[in-house]
């Protein structure tokens, strides 16, 4: 069963494209571009879930694919655009580390995660390929959160981490039980909403969403 879907070159190229989209987020100077890169990534994830569903013939994975499409590729990007517009955020990404060194560090992170996964995985070629991509996405997500100033970019970092995990989960175990998946989607959606509300609050009380201005609680 696993051989059929992960042996396909289609799967391999989609995973490669997901990696590319991660680097698009990492390398883009405009907020909108990074949001659309994230949207593109979620779309690809939905495709992967769709392929897995097709080759296993399990209905619950079809539902997962559908939920990914609706929540991650449509609702959450829409929420981002809404926040950016409503708060009149400056369109450029502000960062502590410039674009080109960040891309370089991203590359290093990818190499590290491939190395790590190779050392643990006893699984087929492609599944470990997906797993290392997923680990790289988690690491790059964290890196994004550390190096970006705006609260909204940090939110994007978390979502990229979560996308990475989704990829890992679906390629390792062909999806988790449906109820769990629905729960995770619910948590992600509510989490994003609450973060959005908090960003509005931060904007109102601090008159900025640069997180390096949040310094009331220093010891």
């Amino acid at each position: 069963m696993p051989g059929i879907m992960f042996g396909s070159e289609l799967m391999e190229s989609i995973i490669a494209l997901i990696m590319v989209s991660t680097f698009m987020v990492l390398g883009s100077k405009q907020l909108y571009t990074s949001v659309s890169a994230f949207q593109f990534q979620s779309l690809l994830l939905a495709c992967i879930a769709g392929i897995v569903a097709f080759s296993t013939g399990r209905i619950d994975i079809y539902i997962v694919a559908f939920l990914t499409l609706i929540i991650k590729a449509i609702l959450i990007p829409y929420l981002f655009v809404y926040v950016i517009k409503e708060l009149k955020v400056k369109r450029e990404v502000e960062l502590f580390i410039n674009i080109s060194p960040s891309l370089l560090i991203g590359g290093v992170l990818v190499v590290i995660s491939y190395y790590l996964v190779r050392s643990i995985s006893n699984n087929s070629q492609l599944s470990s390929y997906a797993l290392s991509t997923s680990m790289a996405m988690v690491l790059i997500g964290i890196f994004l959160m550390i190096t970006r100033k705006k609260a909204i970019s940090q939110m994007l970092g978390i979502l990229i981490m979560e996308n990475g995990l989704f990829l890992g989960a679906i390629s390792l175990t062909y999806g988790m039980p449906l109820l769990v998946e629905v729960g995770i989607f619910f948590d992600i959606l509510v989490g994003t909403l609450i973060m959005g509300v908090l960003i509005f609050r931060i904007n109102r009380t601090f008159e900025t969403i640069d997180t390096d201005r949040l310094t009331t609680l220093m010891e």
Partner: peptide, 19 residues
Amino acid sequence: KSSVEAAWKYLIICTVGIT
């Protein structure tokens, strides 16, 4: 002001942790 900051820190750090 301070509690908004605390909540943001809490939400972000714990969400990353939970990931």
